[in-house]
């Protein structure tokens, strides 16, 4: 991920924790992503640890009542906010038994209010079918940020199930904001090629260029080439101008052009006609950037197309 996109994502996540809109935090745009991440952790800690002692009584009560009864009380009386805090305080096995008895919409509401770092032992053992249902519910609610916080705590079968439960655009949004991007390449490897194709098409149709640029920078060169190949096969004309626009917006020319230089020669040749059809001003600007960064020769046929 580029520093600008990283900061953008961190602001989205910090805004979520603070219960405000990302635009309200525009003044943080120039901040270092690591600083923003640290600040978000500090805010989360102060929100979640402040009431720990206060909730001890509820947590102790859960130990002595049967899971089925606890689930009824949780849903009918405690509600999602309280349950989210209690999940971290209840014995993981007991919390899991209670969770299995709760409906997906309620668990989705709990997930929104939860800090997954505090309940990782519970999350890691939630059955895949329940994960799929909860992910579907979160997807319908537009809770990509929530899902992005949980991905890192799920095992492969659960990740597969979660991805099955959400649509392509939500999956891209979740990948954009997920914690632990270093796992993204592996996660993409869990998807069948048919799904990858439909994600690429959705990215183009919805013009999700920052998300796509981020995905391409976060995966391995081999997977990146496979995704670009899918876009070429689908004849997605909007992809290259869209990605160049995202690169311009985030001032990520070095990263963006380097991604293209790393593509196999065959794909560069296949992308060249799209580069030639770019809007003249966009083509000129891309050419200037490629020259400035000394990447023009490495772009091969794409560079030649930009020069025409």
């Amino acid at each position: 991920m580029t520093a600008a996109l990283d900061a953008q994502v961190e602001i989205i996540k910090l805004a979520r924790v603070l219960g405000t809109e990302p635009e309200e935090l525009d003044y943080l745009r120039a901040a270092q992503p690591d600083d923003l991440r640290r600040l978000r952790d500090q805010v989360t800690d102060v929100l979640f640890d402040g009431d720990r002692a206060r909730l001890g009584g509820f947590a102790a009560g859960s130990r002595v009542i049967p899971a089925a009864f606890a689930a009824t009380v949780a849903e009918r009386a405690l509600g999602p906010v309280l349950c989210a805090r209690l999940t971290a305080l209840v014995e993981p096995d007991k919390a899991l038994e209670i969770a299995k008895r709760l409906p997906a919409p309620f668990l989705a509401a709990v997930a929104v209010e939860m800090d997954p770092r505090r309940a990782k032992d519970v999350i890691a053992h939630v059955p895949a079918d329940l994960i799929e249902a909860v992910a579907g519910e979160l997807g319908r609610r537009g809770e990509a940020v929530t899902m992005g916080r949980f991905v890192g705590f799920l095992r492969d079968p659960a990740v597969r199930a979660a991805m099955k439960g959400i649509d392509d655009a939500t999956l891209l949004e979740t990948a954009f904001v997920m914690e632990g991007k270093e796992r993204l390449d592996h996660i993409m490897s869990l998807l069948p090629s048919k799904r990858l194709r439909s994600i690429v098409v959705a990215a183009n149709e919805r013009e999700m260029w920052p998300e796509t640029l981020d995905l391409l920078t976060s995966v391995s060169p081999k997977r990146r080439a496979a995704l670009v190949k899918l876009a070429i096969d689908e004849d997605l004309e909007g992809m290259l101008p869209g990605l160049f626009a995202a690169v311009e917006d985030t001032d990520s020319w070095k990263t963006g052009l380097r991604l293209l230089t790393e593509l196999p020669q065959e794909l560069k040749s296949q992308l060249a006609p799209a580069a030639e059809r770019l809007d003249p001003s966009q083509r000129k600007h891309a050419l200037e950037q490629a020259r400035r960064l000394g990447l023009l020769d490495d772009l091969g046929p794409i560079g030649e197309a930009l020069s025409r």
Binding site: L18, G19, T20, E24, L25, V46, G50, D51, V81, R85
Partner: peptide, 15 residues
């Protein structure tokens, strides 16, 4: 913003 988030959190738990 941090102060408001803490207040909201406290109120939500009270509720």
């Amino acid at each position: 913003a941090v102060r408001a988030a803490k207040t909201r959190q406290r109120e939500a738990l009270d509720r």
